[in-house]
Design a protein around this nucleic acid. Structure first.
Length: 426
RNA sequence: GGAGAGGUGCGAGAGUGGUUGAAUCGGACGGUCUCGAAAACCGUUGUACCCGUUAGGGUACCGAGGGUUCGAAUCCCUCCCUCUCCGCCA
C-alpha cells in the first residue's frame, strides 16, 4: 500500500514502476477517481463546517430560550446535501482504495529492470557441486529406497501433492527444523515464535497476499480463515495495528510453520518428488527495522540465509531478481537456489525480500524513535530460512555416496543422535 | 456451544443528546526552585485528511460499520475483539 498523497504527486514514477513489474493496474481510472474524490470531499467538508456552526447557534438559542426553528430547518437541508455528498464520497473512497490495494510496491533502484526470470542476475555462487562418477539419483529414488518418504501412500490421506515422511525421514525433517531454529536464535540473534497456522483476512491483506493471491490459498469457509501460505504472514503481522515503542527495533523474529498452497502446479518433471507440494515446512526470518537501515539489513538477512546452506554443505547461488520477477509487495529480492545434482536443477529454497514500508502501511504498523516522537512506518523484510522439502531433496542428492547411503553433514548430526549416514533399514 | 461484562487519549479512568478533542489522576517533555537532585509548583503533551507559499483555516476520529437527530463518545442496529463463569475437549 502506498501513501495516497505519494501516488497523486508521483504519477509518472508510479506508472513507470508498475510497468517495470510487468503488472497491469488501471492507474488512469485510479487517478480520475482520486480527483473526483477530493472535489467531493472538499464540498462535503464545507457543508459540514456550515452545519457545525449552525448547531452551535441552535444550542446557544435553546439555552437562552430564543426561537431556532428557522435555523433547524436550514440545518436539516444542509444535512440532506451532506448525506448525498457523503454517499458519493463513500463510493469513491471504496473504489479508490480497492484500486490502490492492487497497486504493487515499486522496485528499488538497485533492482535491475527486466521482464522475467531470464533477466535475473546471479550475484554469487558458493560451493563446488560434487563430481559424480555415476549418474546421481534423484531424491525420490533415494528417499524411497531408504524409507524416508512414502510417495505411494501419501495421496490416500490428502490427495496428490502432499508428503508422507516415514521413520528417519520424519526425523530428518524434524532435525532440520530444530537445527535451523537453533542456528538463527543462538548465532543470528533472532527471537523464536510459534504462530497460528490459520490466518484472518486482515493479516493477509497486511503482508500483501490479499487481494491478489486469494485463489492460491486454502480457505476455511466456515470461519473465513486461510491456511498459512507462508510464515511471513503470521510473523510479520505480530505487531499489526501497533505503534512500537522506542528500543524495540530492529525486531528479528524466526518461526517454524507449515505453509499451505493450493497452486495447481503444472504436471511434469517439476511435480515429481518433493519439489512442488501443497504443504511444506519452513523456517521463516522476519525483520522489522528503521527505514534508513533496511537495505543493510537486507544484506544481513541474505547472509543469515546463506549460513544455513553453508552449514548443510549445499552448493547454492544467490540471485538478484529483476523487476518483472518481483512479487507484488517486494521492492528488492534475492532468491537462493540450491543445486540438486539428481534432477540437475537449481531449486529455489529461499526468497529474501525488502518490502520497505509497503507492508507496514497495509498493516498500520508504526514505530517511535523516541518517546514523544512522531510515529513512522518501519520497513519490513523477510526470508525463508529456509524452505524444507527442497532443502531435504538437495541434501539427499548432494550427499549421496554412490553406495546407496546419504552422508549427514556434521552440523546436523547432533540433531540425529550423532548419526553420520542414512542407510537402508535392516 | 450456553450465560454475563466490557472496549474512551501514552496508561488508569470519568463522561449517558448541545461550545467535550474529551474531566481527573498518572506518565513523558519543558520551566521555576536547588550547588545538584528529590519534592513542590507552573506549562506543554493525539492522529489522519483537505485548503493554504507561510501564518493559519476546515473536516473527521471515544473498537468497526450503519441508523435516529438540527446536533451523538452519549440513543438504536449489525459486526469485531477482550474478559469472567459453565459445558465440551487434546
Amino acid at each position: 500500500m502506498h501513501d495516497l498523497k505519494f501516488l497523486r504527486n508521483n504519477r509518472a514514477r508510479v506508472e513507470a514502476g508498475v510497468a517495470l513489474k510487468g503488472m497491469t493496474v488501471d492507474l488512469a481510472r485510479f487517478y480520475a477517481i482520486e480527483e473526483r474524490r477530493l472535489a467531493v470531499l472538499h464540498e462535503s467538508e464545507q457543508f459540514k463546517a456550515r452545519r457545525n456552526s449552525a448547531s452551535e447557534e441552535i444550542a446557544r438559542r435553546k439555552t437562552t430560550g430564543a426561537a431556532a426553528d428557522e435555523l433547524i430547518a436550514q440545518s436539516r437541508e444542509i444535512g440532506e446535501r451532506i448525506k448525498a455528498l457523503d454517499a458519493e464520497l463513500k463510493t469513491l473512497e471504496q473504489e479508490s482504495s480497492e484500486l490502490a490495494a492492487w497497486i504493487p510496491n515499486l522496485p528499488h533502484e538497485s533492482t535491475p529492470p527486466g521482464k522475467d526470470a531470464a533477466q535475473n542476475q546471479v550475484k554469487r555462487v558458493w560451493g563446488e557441486p560434487q563430481a559424480f562418477d555415476y549418474d546421481p539419483e534423484p531424491h525420490w529414488e533415494i528417499a524411497t529406497r531408504l524409507g524416508l518418504l512414502d510417495f505411494a501412500r501419501a495421496p490416500k490421506i490428502a490427495g496428490s501433492g502432499f508428503l508422507l515422511f516415514t521413520g528417519l525421514g520424519a526425523r530428518l525433517e524434524r532435525a532440520l527444523i530444530q537445527f535451523m531454529l537453533d542456528f538463527h536464535t543462538t548465532r543470528h540473534g533472532y527471537t523464536e515464535i510459534s504462530p497460528p497456522h490459520v490466518i484472518r483476512r486482515a493479516a493477509l491483506f497486511g503482508t500483501g497476499q490479499l487481494p491478489k493471491l486469494e485463489g492460491d490459498m486454502y480457505h476455511v469457509g466456515e470461519d473465513d480463515l486461510f491456511l498459512n501460505p507462508t510464515a511471513e504472514v503470521p510473523v510479520t503481522n505480530v505487531y499489526r495495528d501497533e505503534i512500537l515503542e522506542p528500543g524495540l527495533l530492529p525486531a528479528n523474529l524466526t518461526a517454524y510453520c507449515a505453509s499451505y498452497r493450493r497452486e495447481a502446479g503444472a504436471a511434469g518433471a517439476d511435480t515429481r518428488g518433493m519439489v512442488r507440494v501443497h504443504q511444506f515446512d519452513k523456517v521463516e526470518l522476519v525483520k522489522i527495522v528503521a527505514p534508513e537501515t533496511s537495505y543493510d539489513e537486507h544484506e544481513r538477512l541474505a547472509r543469515d540465509v546463506s549460513d544455513i546452506f553453508e552449514a548443510l554443505e549445499l552448493p547454492y547461488r544467490q540471485v538478484l531478481l529483476c523487476s518483472g520477477d518481483l512479487s507484488f509487495a517486494a521492492a528488492k529480492c534475492y532468491d537462493f537456489e540450491v543445486w540438486a545434482p539428481g534432477i540437475k536443477a537449481w531449486l529455489e529454497c529461499s526468497s529474501c525480500s525488502n518490502f520497505e514500508d509497503f507492508q507496514a502501511r497495509r498493516m498500520n504498523l508504526r514505530f517511535r524513535r523516541e518517546a514523544g516522537a512522531k510515529a513512522e512506518h518501519p520497513h519490513t523484510l523477510n526470508a525463508s530460512g529456509v524452505a524444507l522439502p527442497r532443502t531435504f531433496a538437495a541434501l539427499l542428492e548432494n550427499h549421496q555416496t554412490g553406495v546407496g547411503t546419504v552422508r549427514i553433514p556434521a552440523a546436523l548430526r547432533p540433531y540425529l543422535g550423532g548419526l553420520e549416514e542414512l542407510a537402508a533399514a535392516g
